[in-house]
């Protein structure tokens, strides 16, 4: 945690834009550069910046590790679950065409959106958790 006013104010101003940019990269990933992984790390970098400037305890309050652990696993489950959903709808595993039988292109869009969301969720929560685990340890020597 830092008490330097400039850092605290600049972080407070930048935080919403970093998180918003993360969401933009996440949901615009099929039209512009980026995708789930990039969005996840940008989002995690935003939370880590907050933890650096405002202290680990404040960051844990906005992103509790219990929730992050669930999101970490849920992200992978969303990806794999999309594959199971396409199988249930009569296609192959991860064959997004099956999601929308009348318009395969729509199915592809939905499938990509879902799996990228899963990747982003897993990467963002995983990165944040690892930082929390590092920062929460005490000095060994």
């Amino acid at each position: 945690m830092t008490t330097v006013t400039i850092l605290r104010v600049v972080t407070k101003i930048l935080m919403p834009y970093i998180l918003l940019f993360g969401l933009y990269v996440q949901f615009h990933g099929d039209f512009g550069p980026g995708g789930g992984f990039q969005a996840g790390v940008i989002f995690a970098a935003g939370i880590i910046l907050y933890a650096l400037v405002y202290g680990l305890n404040s960051a844990i309050r906005i992103a509790p590790p219990v929730v992050l652990e669930s999101l970490f696993a849920l992200g992978v489950l969303i990806f794999a679950g999309t594959g199971v959903a396409t199988m249930l709808m009569g296609g192959h595993f991860l064959d997004y065409n099956a999601l929308s039988p009348h318009d395969p292109i729509h199915g592809q869009h939905w499938g990509l959106m879902a799996v990228e969301f899963g990747v982003g969720m897993a990467v963002a929560s995983g990165m944040t958790l690892i930082y929390f685990a590092f920062a929460g340890r005490e000095r060994v020597r």
């Binding site: 990933g29 099929d30 039209f31 512009g32 550069p33 995708g35 991860l94 997004y96 395969p104 292109i105 592809q108 869009h109 499938g111 990509l112 799996v115 990228e116």
Partner: peptide, 14 residues
């Protein structure tokens, strides 16, 4: 086949 402009996303995701 996929209908998205970003080929990288199409290859990686689909």
């Amino acid at each position: 086949e996929i209908g998205v402009p970003n080929v990288i996303t199409a290859v990686l995701g689909s």
